Simulated assay, not measured.
Amino acid sequence: MIVVMKPDATEDQISHVRDHISQLGLQPQVIVGRHQTVIAAIGEERPGLVETLEPSPGVVKVLPIMAPYKRASSELKAERTVVRARSLEIGGKRIGVIAGPCSVESEGQIVSIARTLKALGATGLRGGAYKPRTSPYSFQGHKVDGLKMLATARDETGLAIVTEVMAPEHVAVVAEYADVLQIGARNMQNYQLLTAVGESGKPAFLKRGMASTMEEFLLAAEYILDRGNDQVILCERGVRTFEEHTRFTLPLASVPYLQAKTHLPVVVDPSHGTGKAPLVPPMARAAIAAGADGLMVEVHEDPEHAMSDGAQTITPSAFERMMAECRRVAEAVDRSL
């Protein structure tokens, strides 16, 4: 539930309510807004809590949080969350663009593409050091060496690094090099990993599972938020359907839906969402028109010879055209790129 404080509530009154919530066996979370403060009481709701908390000095009213995802819900926090990591900002007026190859193949490759992408307007660099692959015989990534290559590219360009972490035991080492920890679609309900990323304190980039509902997606985000990490980015990357004309089906209606239900920023991945390079730019434009706070796009200087996901990867020249087109769409919806 949410305890709404008066606009002129004092620090002592806020502390009193926070302590009272703790004494009731609930977790208090103080959220300071522009005009007033609210205190979330997270835990099992039971009869009599409203009557117990509402008479406290400085309290306007006590409201239940109806959504099962308490911390992620816009009922708890009306103001949009903005996630920042070095050059990357997701959730503000400017649309963040995370771009790069599916896999880190070599230091020369990742540094070269990072320089190009920075010049073309990207604000974050993606690249897999640990690669989850359907076949055990496919390239699995350079792992720690790949992380070091990403760090070199960051040193050269200043771009924030967004890279995937696949297991709880990898969180510490990936967090040492990365600026944002990505949790892939296959790991969206790996609750130990979600908890470990939440405890890392690093911004989290959570991709929707390929067969997950919106509620399951937001409850996965709740695991990260529940560990005290409020820097969570949601990513719609497409879901499995019976269609075969694309690798996945990219449901852009999820963007305004998520923005209505949660305060967390929403990014769209048109590369995985379509699986086909020619479809990436038009779906990127559509994502911005739908209100996306950011894009994640796979870009490679030679997609034909990429070590993974070449079919959905665009070239730097296609990325440059895409950025020019997306800027015009962004301006039309009162955003910038």
Score class of each variant (00 low, 15 high):
G273P: 07
D19V: 04
L258H: 10
Q109I: 04
P203E: 01
V171S: 01
I110K: 06
G91D: 01
K131N: 12
V267D: 01
D293E: 02
A41E: 12
V297Y: 10
D179N: 08
H245S: 14
P64I: 10
L206W: 01
G310L: 04
E244L: 11
I90H: 03
E222A: 01
P28D: 11
Y177K: 02
L26R: 02
E169P: 05
D145H: 13
G100E: 00
G273Q: 02
E331C: 10
I14C: 07
P28F: 08
Q192V: 07
R240E: 12
P55S: 11
P28H: 07
L295M: 01
A220L: 06
E216S: 12
I233V: 11
I110R: 00
E199W: 00
H142R: 14
L159W: 07
A78W: 15
Q192D: 15
I2D: 02
P281K: 02
T163A: 12
A129H: 12
F205L: 03
E222Q: 03
L49F: 09
A167C: 13
E199T: 06
T195P: 01
R126P: 12
N187T: 08
E298G: 01
M1N: 05
A160Y: 01
A220E: 00
T315E: 08
D19H: 14
A286R: 09
A41I: 03
S87C: 08
T10F: 13
T37N: 09
T81H: 06
F205I: 03
K118S: 04
P101M: 06
R84G: 08
M283T: 09
G43L: 04
E75V: 14
P256Y: 04
H170Y: 12
E176L: 04
V4Q: 12
L252S: 13
S22L: 06
E244G: 09
P132E: 13
A153H: 05
Q259K: 12
P64W: 14
V30I: 15
E222V: 03
V174Y: 04
S74V: 06
A185L: 12
V266H: 00
L53N: 02
H305P: 00
E11L: 08
M296G: 04
K143R: 15
M210T: 09
S200V: 01
R186I: 04
L76T: 07
D230G: 13
A332W: 15
Q182K: 10
E11N: 09
Q189L: 04
G275E: 03
K148H: 09
T313W: 02
Q13P: 11
K143Q: 14
M296Y: 05
G33S: 01
D334R: 10
S106W: 15
K143S: 06
M296S: 06
D334T: 14
V255G: 08
Y69Q: 05
Q13E: 15
M296I: 03
F205T: 09
E199Y: 00
L88V: 03
V3C: 08
E75K: 07
S254F: 11
G238T: 01
E244R: 15
R335W: 07
E244C: 15
A167E: 10
A211T: 06
Q192N: 08
L234Y: 02
K131F: 08
T313P: 07
P55C: 15
V144L: 13
G291M: 02
Q27N: 12
A324Q: 14
A114P: 07
G91F: 09
F139Y: 05
K93Q: 10
S103A: 14
P303K: 05
A41Q: 11
D309N: 02
I183V: 14
H245R: 08
E11T: 05
E75T: 04
P57M: 13
A9C: 05
